[in-house]
Lab assay of single mutants.
Amino acid sequence: MFYPNSPQTSPQLTQIPYGQQYAMMQRQIQQPYHPFATTEPQARLYPYHYQGPIQQEQGGFITQQSTAASPQYVQMRVTPVDQSIMSGYPNQTANGSSSSSFNYNIHPQQQQQQQQQQQQLRHHAMPVGSVPLQDDRYRKQLIVNYLAPDVTSTDLHELFSRFGELDGARIIYDKQTNMSKGYGFVYFCHAEDAKEAVERMSGYEFHGKWLKVGYSTNPLNIVPSNSSPYVHAGSRGAAG
């Protein structure tokens, strides 16, 4: 039997160049792979992502010199942007860049009308829970959420009447099932009393439920100042 490094198959040491006398086997001759043993700084910083320098080929596509990437890492192929796409944008300079302001050559009167329309939209648009300043009635009506099913309009009136005089209180019921929808409205005579009720009743436990109280901004629920107070009856038909 002959071994790869046996004296019968191995040459004389004098015939082997210096430095390879003890590297006779194939696994010894093959050098191990060192990912950080390279002179390129990109490979030292990113050993798993770097795959060699990027070269520009004919046709405008950018390719990489090395083989496919590892399945664990996804390499994105980048193509140059066609400058003709950006030619339609206004205020574009000769080098292809555009300024931040756009001039669509709008007539001054049209621009003024658009600004007025935007101001009107901001004036009428009102986020949930906010209180408008032009109508004091919005500051007097509250919406009470997360009410228990057994709470009546009379219970709601008695709960909030300790903060001040009320114009009314009612629970909203479903017309088909005649069941409470879980929320109601309270109408105060003074805005200061309503503000105190919002601050003190939010998070209050009532009939096993934690109440959420806020201003009601729905104009359909506003009680006119010259109208008669609501009837605080315990029956659902009268309260709904």
Rank of each mutant, 00 (worst) to 15 (best):
V128W: 10
L159F: 01
T177C: 06
Q141M: 00
P47M: 02
I172V: 02
K212S: 04
P127H: 14
Q83A: 09
M24S: 14
L159P: 02
F163H: 03
S202D: 05
E205K: 10
F36V: 15
L133V: 12
S100W: 07
E205T: 14
A233P: 09
Y138C: 04
F185K: 02
E165P: 10
R200G: 04
Q8W: 01
M201Y: 04
P4I: 02
A239D: 05
K181R: 14
D135K: 04
P108K: 14
Q112W: 10
D167C: 03
Y104D: 03
F163G: 01
S216T: 13
L159C: 08
S97L: 07
R162S: 12
Q118N: 08
P132W: 02
Q114I: 11
Y46N: 15
E57T: 10
V151D: 01
T152Q: 11
S70Y: 04
H49T: 09
Y146M: 01
Q30R: 14
G184D: 01
L156D: 00
P80A: 07
S216L: 00
G208N: 05
L159M: 12
Y50A: 13
Q111T: 11
Q116C: 10
D136I: 06
Q30T: 08
Q83C: 03
F185Q: 00
P17T: 11
P132H: 13
T38K: 15
S161W: 15
M86Y: 10
A94M: 09
I85A: 09
L156H: 01
P90T: 09
Q21P: 13
H34D: 07
W210G: 02
I16Y: 07
Q141P: 01
Q64A: 08
F206K: 00
L13K: 15
V198A: 08
P17H: 06
Q141E: 02
Q8E: 05
A197D: 02
Q113D: 05
R139C: 08
P80W: 02
D82L: 04
I143S: 01
L166S: 00
Q116I: 13
G234E: 12
G164D: 00
I16Q: 14
L142N: 00
Y3N: 12
P149N: 02
Q31Y: 05
T38V: 13
P41M: 04
K181A: 02
A37V: 13
V144L: 02
Q58K: 12
S101N: 09
S180H: 09
E192A: 09
N103Y: 04
H107V: 05
Q134G: 06
P229K: 11
G168S: 00
S100L: 09
Q31D: 08
G237H: 12
Q112M: 09
P127I: 04
T14C: 08
G240R: 07
G60E: 12
Q42C: 07
Y215L: 02
I54Y: 05
P229W: 06
E40C: 05
F163T: 02
Q28H: 11
R236A: 05
I62V: 12
A125T: 12
H49I: 03
G240Q: 04
A23V: 03
S10G: 10
N5E: 06
I29C: 15
R44S: 04
Y22R: 15
F160E: 00
Y46G: 13
A194E: 02
S153M: 15
E40R: 14
H124M: 06
L121D: 05
R139H: 12
L133R: 14
L220E: 01
A191E: 13
S10H: 10
R200T: 06
I29G: 09
N221C: 13
I172L: 03
F2I: 11
P4H: 12
Q12V: 03
A43L: 03
K195R: 15
A125W: 15
Q83G: 05
Q42T: 12
Q113L: 11
L220D: 00
F61Q: 15
P219C: 00
G59N: 11
F163D: 02
Q58D: 09
G60D: 05
D82E: 10
S99W: 08
F102T: 10
Q119N: 10
Q111S: 06
R27W: 03
Q116P: 08
M201R: 01
V198N: 07
T93P: 09
V81P: 12
A191V: 13
P32G: 06
W210R: 02
R77C: 04
V186W: 01
Q56S: 07
I222V: 03
F185C: 01
P108W: 13
Q92V: 06
D155I: 12
G240V: 06
S225K: 13
E205Y: 15
Q141Y: 00
Y46Q: 14
T39M: 11
H232V: 06
F2V: 15
H232N: 13
L156S: 00
E196K: 13
Q58N: 10
A238P: 08
R170V: 01
Q118M: 06
P127L: 06
V144Q: 01
G184A: 01
G182A: 12
V128A: 13
I171A: 03
S235D: 10
V74D: 09
Q141F: 00
Q83F: 04
Q8N: 09
S235R: 07
S228P: 07
P80Q: 13
H190M: 10
N226V: 05
Q116T: 07
I62L: 11
Y215S: 01
Q120M: 11
K195I: 11
M126A: 10
N95I: 10
Y187F: 01
I62D: 15
R137W: 04
Q65N: 13
Y33E: 07
Y215G: 00
I29A: 15
F102G: 12
Q176M: 07
G182C: 15
R77D: 03
V78D: 10
G52M: 07
P80D: 08
D155Y: 07
I171G: 00
S87P: 06
T152L: 05
F188P: 00
V223K: 14
S6Y: 06
M76T: 15
Q109M: 11
I62N: 12
T63G: 11
Q119C: 14
P11V: 04
N103F: 12
S235M: 15
K209R: 07
S225D: 05
Q141T: 00
F188H: 01
Q15G: 11
T9R: 13
S130H: 14
E192D: 08
T38H: 11
Q28W: 04
S6Q: 11
H157M: 14
F188G: 00
P32M: 03
R236I: 07
T14L: 04
Y46C: 08
E199C: 14
S101G: 10
Y33C: 14
G234K: 09
L220P: 00
Q30M: 02
V131M: 11
Y73H: 14
Q28T: 07
D150F: 15
V151P: 00
Q65W: 03
A69W: 02
Q12G: 13
I171F: 00
A43D: 10
Q30N: 04
Q75M: 01
Q117G: 10
G164F: 02
P132G: 06
V186R: 01
D136A: 06
Q64N: 13
A68N: 05
P32C: 05
Q51V: 04
